[in-house]
Amino acid sequence: MPETLSQLLDDSVLAMPIAAGLIMGALTINVLMLVWAERKVSAWIQRRMGPTEVGPFGLLQTLADMLKLISKQLITPSNVDKPLFHLAPLLAFAPVIAAVALMPFSKSLILVQNDFGLLFVFAFGGIAVIAIFMAGWGSNNKYALLGAIRSVAQSISYEIPLILSALSVVLVVNAMGFTLASGGSIVVANGLDLSHIVMAQDQHGLWFVLVQPIAAIIYFISALAETNRAPFDIPEAESELVAGFHTEYSGMRFSMFFFAEYTNMLIVSMLAVVLFFGGWDGPVLPGPLWFFLKSYMVIFVMMWVRWTFPRLRFDQLMTFCWKVMIPLSILNLLATAFVVAVL
């Protein structure tokens, strides 16, 4: 028996199509469910019912939305930058699939095993910013451009505390010198390997949210900003900029942005689970199930936050990032480094 799924796939010519198909299918179902869940959660927070008429509990609501979006007219406005305009949705769509492939769903269920998985996930997150800016720039629309500029400023700013908070976890994993039993041999934990981070928590029975609570909070807030979710959704603030960077996108192109947004949510929450909540670690139930349960709990908190708080003003957003988040995360990192060095 091959040890991991990735090895199994390495042996086959069909490796790429199978993996891509698996991820695409899973992600599509995930997005369908997440949009439904978002609408239901928002409805319940507002004490209404949410979608009820399409399918049981309105479960097929998003399917109807997809059917409609597929059959909608695709409008290409005049004077758009055609290559950028057409490429942007694909570019927003592709990296999120790549990032999901790196996630360790369980000890053996890893599509792509990589020693520097954490860096790759952040790198793919960076590509999404380029896609958004391409969309805004290519649309030849002032609102789209303003939304894109805001999005770039926001994403670049919030990537700093995001990475700094993740770095403090990496520091803990690396410096504590966890030894992991992996496939019969003992290896020293590599803090940039996502599965090693989980195994470090799994085998020592200590979730890093307890070791690094401040980093966890900073990570969560920065993740909200990274995925352009409320209260940091100023790139698509509908009261100011019509619909932000996707103002000019209709039909399936728009739904690709939609898809990317919700899959991004899944990725940041999966990463949160990997970094702070012990990944697949959990009693009774199988590992992947625990992993997804925890991820969806984090997503629920993200939705809960979205339907609670009003949108920040742009200057408040930047002030909050540069004057609160970054100093705090640097302090946290320094404190971690100090403690690690002393121990």
């Binding site: 959660v41 927070i45 004490r47 809960w304 609670t308 708080f309």
Partner: peptide, 13 residues
């Protein structure tokens, strides 16, 4: 704020 919205959520859910 989150406590308040969750209480409403719980009442409905």
């Amino acid at each position: 704020g989150m406590r308040i919205t969750f209480s409403q959520f719980a009442k409905t859910f």
